[in-house]
């Protein structure tokens, strides 16, 4: 990138989500000046009210699709973006709100129990990944993503190289850190063996089992891990709850003998996962 060239424009969009992914960008406090030096923040309401009109070189998308309006809006954003990257568990896999997708759940039946005026609520019966609706160029995993992975992504886009984002199992990072395995040494159920590294093995470092918040590792073997959890004496419904968290609807976290439940509403194919 030469000094004279216009900076690439970056837009950050929110769908059904908690804003945590966007906050991870803002958490890059020490690097924010470098970021705004390298890219033009064209649309990022959580950061600035100034808006530059599209189309955009890069769009980062947080959140899942849970309303008819969102299903339309993501198609427009796709039209207006050269590169579109999804951020976080909601955008990548539907998020924890995808619990509504499972058999027996009925989002429409829940609405009156949550909202005083259910007549104002218009919702889909599913929460689906952005890549179920449009093609994407890649994603950064995690609930929320590691802020340094976001920095790595932005750097790689600026320099035109492939970002270094891990896809291997949490256990590798746990061992590198020198942690004692909580599953083997404490008998604590841990999702680490099937979970993607990237958080810095936070939970095992504090003697907790991994909760899978970075999503499935590259080739998760949930059947084998379930066998191990059973041998630790974890109850069947706790095993199911254990894997139905941030990445509940991700095919990588489907348990033994389970189908991937009902198909998502949209008929577009899933994206490729990581870039």
């Amino acid at each position: 990138m030469s000094e004279a060239a216009a900076k690439p424009t970056l837009a950050v969009w929110k769908f059904s989500s908690c804003d945590g992914c966007q906050l991870s960008i803002l958490d890059l406090e020490e690097e924010l000046l470098d970021i705004v030096g390298a890219v033009e923040i064209a649309y990022f309401p959580e950061m600035t009210r100034a808006v530059v009109k599209g189309p955009y070189d890069v769009s980062l998308v947080e959140g899942s699709v849970t309303t008819p309006e969102e299903a339309e809006r993501i198609a427009e954003i796709r039209e207006n973006s050269k590169i579109l990257i999804t951020l976080g568990a909601c955008a990548v896999a539907g998020g924890i709100q995808a619990l509504r997708n499972f058999d027996g759940a009925d989002a429409h039946a829940w609405v009156p129990t949550v909202y005083a005026h259910p007549e104002y609520i218009s919702t889909l019966s599913t929460s689906t990944a952005i890549s179920d609706h449009i093609d994407i160029q890649g994603s950064v995993q995690g609930c929320p993503p590691n802020k340094y992975h976001l920095l790595e992504l932005i750097g790689s886009l600026v320099w035109g190289r492939t970002p270094n984002l891990p896809t291997h199992s949490q256990c590798l990072d746990c061992k590198v850190k020198g942690n004692v395995c909580v599953l083997v040494a404490h008998g604590t159920p841990c999702l680490g063996p099937v979970t993607r590294a990237g958080c810095g093995s936070v939970c095992p470092s504090y003697h907790r089992g991994c909760y899978g918040c970075h999503g499935p590792a590259e080739t998760p073997n949930m059947d084998a891990l379930t066998t191990r959890w059973r041998s630790l004496g974890v109850a069947e419904d706790d095993i199911v709850r254990g894997r139905r968290m941030f990445y509940a609807w991700d095919p990588g976290f489907v348990g033994p003998g389970e189908e991937h439940h009902k198909q998502p509403a949209a008929e577009t194919t899933r994206g490729q996962g990581s870039i």
Partner: peptide
């Protein structure tokens, strides 16, 4: 292969 998690622990230790 059905039991292995490809977790890498064996090679790390």
């Amino acid at each position: 292969g059905e039991r292995c998690l490809s977790c890498t622990s064996c090679t790390m230790v």
